[in-house]
Amino acid sequence: MSKKPSYCFIINCASNAFRAEAFFRNKESELKARFPGTSCIYISKDDSITEIARQKAEEHTHIIACGGDGTVNRVANGLVGSNCILGVIPLGSGNDFAQSIGLDHVFDRNVEALSREEITRVDVVSSDWGYFLNTFGIGVDGLTNYYASKSGFKSGFLRYFMGGLKALIKSKPLRTKISISGQTNDIEQEVWMVAVANGKSEGGKYQISPSSINSDGKVELIVVKSVTRVRLIYEFLKLSFGFSFNKQMVDEYSFTDSVSISTEHVLKAHADGEQVPENDHHTFKVLPGALKVITA
């Protein structure tokens, strides 16, 4: 016998410039009337979103991540391996995963999508430190995210843009070795950055991997070659206005099983916009259709 639907909304109170809690408390009665068995969990900075999501997945059939990409990532980390369905109410500055499943910034439309419950099985990428849904980046990409996370700008675009400019000035090309399962020869070259892309964009509008689809069972590797710094800055400015990389300055690969990336020294890195432990070696594995997600 199927379990009766019930919903748990996990709200990151820091989202939407710390306005998320007040907004959702005003919406609680509406949500509880619309969705059966609704509970709302308000997350403070010291709470483990992943652990709370894991616990609530034992009580509810649907867990709704209310926040930005980092919130979605941490909720997803608590749901992988369960039969629970993930929903998203995007409240962050980038909302790249939400965009990839057809959601926008309009609350009522996103609630309508939850009501329709069109479910897609989305691929998940596992790593040495957990799972991610959208992108992982090292090199300029990882450093850009680090500087953006430390920025005082309220605008998500300005945080990422200014963080990118700072990273472009301070970064240096790095030696990498990439080993893709099923391929005999490793890829060894000097690069500016490597992105593992299950989704098309990061930072809200930076289309780093336009060919990526998060439900096709494969993940792309975007390798930015060691071009001149001036050329790299020019390409970053293009990305900032919605254009994608010039194909001549990137190598693109894909994998359906696993890949490992080694660098000459430890580097800052991000996954779904969250900084992850610095390392000089990362291993990734594709988990096709590992998460059931409500899409628009």
Score class of each variant (00 low, 15 high):
residue 258 S to L: 05
residue 258 S to C: 11
residue 145 N to T: 12
residue 97 F to T: 04
residue 295 T to M: 05
residue 91 L to N: 06
residue 128 D to Y: 04
residue 147 Y to Q: 03
residue 100 S to V: 07
residue 265 H to N: 14
residue 263 T to G: 06
residue 107 F to G: 06
residue 110 N to A: 10
residue 73 N to P: 10
residue 188 E to H: 08
residue 123 D to V: 09
residue 7 Y to V: 03
residue 182 G to P: 05
residue 28 E to T: 00
residue 53 A to Y: 00
residue 98 A to K: 06
residue 234 Y to A: 09
residue 203 G to I: 02
residue 183 Q to A: 10
residue 8 C to N: 02
residue 188 E to Y: 02
residue 173 P to N: 07
residue 22 A to S: 12
residue 192 W to S: 03
residue 157 F to E: 03
residue 133 L to C: 07
residue 54 R to F: 09
residue 262 S to W: 02
residue 82 S to Q: 09
residue 43 I to N: 07
residue 218 K to F: 02
residue 254 S to Y: 01
residue 187 I to L: 08
residue 259 V to S: 08
residue 255 F to W: 01
residue 3 K to Y: 12
residue 117 E to S: 13
residue 127 S to R: 04
residue 63 I to E: 02
residue 3 K to F: 15
residue 153 F to Y: 15
residue 62 H to Q: 06
residue 136 F to V: 03
residue 113 A to N: 07
residue 209 S to N: 04
residue 62 H to R: 04
residue 86 L to M: 10
residue 228 T to C: 09
residue 23 F to E: 05
residue 68 G to M: 05
residue 152 G to H: 14
residue 276 V to A: 09
residue 32 K to T: 15
residue 85 I to R: 09
residue 73 N to I: 13
residue 108 D to A: 14
residue 189 Q to L: 15
residue 184 T to P: 06
residue 31 L to I: 03
residue 44 S to W: 04
residue 254 S to Q: 10
residue 261 I to Y: 01
residue 244 S to D: 00
residue 248 Q to G: 13
residue 275 Q to L: 15
residue 115 S to K: 12
residue 13 C to G: 01
residue 25 R to P: 00
residue 4 K to R: 12
residue 67 G to R: 08
residue 81 G to N: 07
residue 192 W to I: 06
residue 280 D to A: 10
residue 211 S to N: 04
residue 98 A to T: 09
residue 58 E to D: 15
residue 260 S to F: 01
residue 294 I to D: 06
residue 23 F to Y: 10
residue 84 C to L: 08
residue 141 D to H: 04
residue 175 R to A: 11
residue 78 G to Y: 02
residue 18 F to D: 14
residue 103 L to T: 11
residue 112 E to M: 12
residue 59 E to C: 10
residue 44 S to P: 09
residue 128 D to L: 07
residue 210 P to A: 03
residue 49 I to A: 02
residue 296 A to W: 05
residue 123 D to A: 05
residue 96 D to W: 08
residue 295 T to C: 15
residue 167 A to W: 12
residue 58 E to S: 12
residue 182 G to F: 10
residue 240 S to R: 10
residue 265 H to A: 13
residue 110 N to K: 09
residue 180 I to D: 07
residue 19 R to Y: 01
residue 100 S to P: 02
residue 111 V to T: 13
residue 19 R to P: 05
residue 284 F to E: 03
residue 35 F to W: 03
residue 277 P to R: 08
residue 98 A to D: 11
residue 104 D to G: 13
residue 252 E to D: 01
residue 285 K to F: 04
residue 57 A to Y: 06
residue 11 I to T: 02
residue 186 D to N: 14
residue 194 V to I: 15
residue 229 R to E: 10
residue 124 V to H: 10
residue 241 F to L: 06
residue 168 L to Q: 09
residue 167 A to G: 11
residue 114 L to D: 03
residue 206 Y to L: 11
residue 229 R to W: 08
residue 108 D to C: 08
residue 25 R to C: 00
residue 109 R to F: 05
residue 3 K to M: 15
residue 83 N to E: 15
residue 45 K to S: 15
residue 41 I to P: 00
residue 151 S to Q: 12
residue 231 R to F: 02
residue 56 K to I: 02
residue 95 N to H: 06
residue 112 E to K: 11
residue 264 E to W: 06
residue 71 T to C: 09
residue 77 N to M: 03
residue 273 G to E: 03
residue 266 V to Q: 14
residue 152 G to K: 14
residue 45 K to R: 13
residue 241 F to S: 06
residue 289 G to W: 11
residue 122 V to R: 08
residue 89 I to V: 14
residue 130 G to S: 07
residue 64 I to Y: 01
residue 165 L to A: 07
residue 21 E to C: 07
residue 6 S to W: 05
residue 31 L to E: 01
residue 220 E to R: 00
